[in-house]
Design a protein around this nucleic acid. Sequence first.
DNA 1: AGATAATAGATGTATATACAGATATTGCAG
DNA 2: CTGCAATATCTGTATATACATCTATTATCT
Lengths: 157, 157
Amino acid sequence: MARKTDSVLESAAFRQLMEEGCTVLRLHAATRLSMQAYNAFMAEVDLTMPQFATLASLYQEDGLSMAALAQLIGVDATTLTRNLRLLERRGLVLQDTAADDRRRRVVRLTPEGRRLFLRAVPLWQKAQAALKKRLGVTLTEALHKQLTQVVEKLRGS
Amino acid sequence: MARKTDSVLESAAFRQLMEEGCTVLRLHAATRLSMQAYNAFMAEVDLTMPQFATLASLYQEDGLSMAALAQLIGVDATTLTRNLRLLERRGLVLQDTAADDRRRRVVRLTPEGRRLFLRAVPLWQKAQAALKKRLGVTLTEALHKQLTQVVEKLRGS
DNA sequence: AGATAATAGATGTATATACAGATATTGCAG
DNA sequence: CTGCAATATCTGTATATACATCTATTATCT
């Protein structure tokens, strides 16, 4: 352990980190810890939560381009490229080259993709209910509202 | 797009997902979107946020076992095994076999590890300030408090 | 029209992550 | 003291993630 006399120990930055902690590290930890439970519920349909998120976005708005879908989900477009590949292999989504601009890919759910997604929804609900139970209703709902704001503010830019 | 007459569209689970959304997906999106900014600030010391978190935990409490450190950070112990390897290669941490139980590894910061961590702290603070500016003080602080509670509740089990 | 800039995705590479199962060590029952 | 259960960690394998860079296509400027 560092000696108390280290000059850095007196810095405002250091004290802030040790006393308040880091927003993103808490976000990340909360994500990891809760995602595991969700993934366990989803195992029955062999979908991870990122995959479920992708199918859900396409269910709501089909025929998006890679860039648009990536922005909606909040991942880098290159991440989406790899993630879609797995769903494509399983026949859950399809990519077509757009007729008007051959650079663009149009991503769509297949009937199997839609069916699997709808089968996953009640499993998701169980996971969501389990988390709410562990965290308590008050905390869950407050957190939910604030996260909605956070994602909105970060997604735009 | 599915027809409005699909029976599943009437299910409570489906409506909940489409209207309220999913807590974990929002958590995950918020993490991804904000982590990128932090990582950019940290590039100067070539540390990712997970790496920074590991060094910070060891700075606070040196000589933890793998399991204890993993629990503190909130990652699976097998994840920590791989993540520590990178820090070890760079000479930032050391693992010794515990004298009293040779199954256990005692993880410690090297002087270089401590130096680099202390150099990273002001960079972290810049990142933290930048996020607070984007989200607004009110939202940031409310979120922060709730995440603290969330992590506490999830970490224990 | 031809050269060049801009855009949409894909690839190379690296880290992060966790589950299932393997290995090494310790503790305990008999 | 021997064998088996429990514990701590590591490995095999698979997905998730993003930055830098590359390729293909479209748009723009002269």
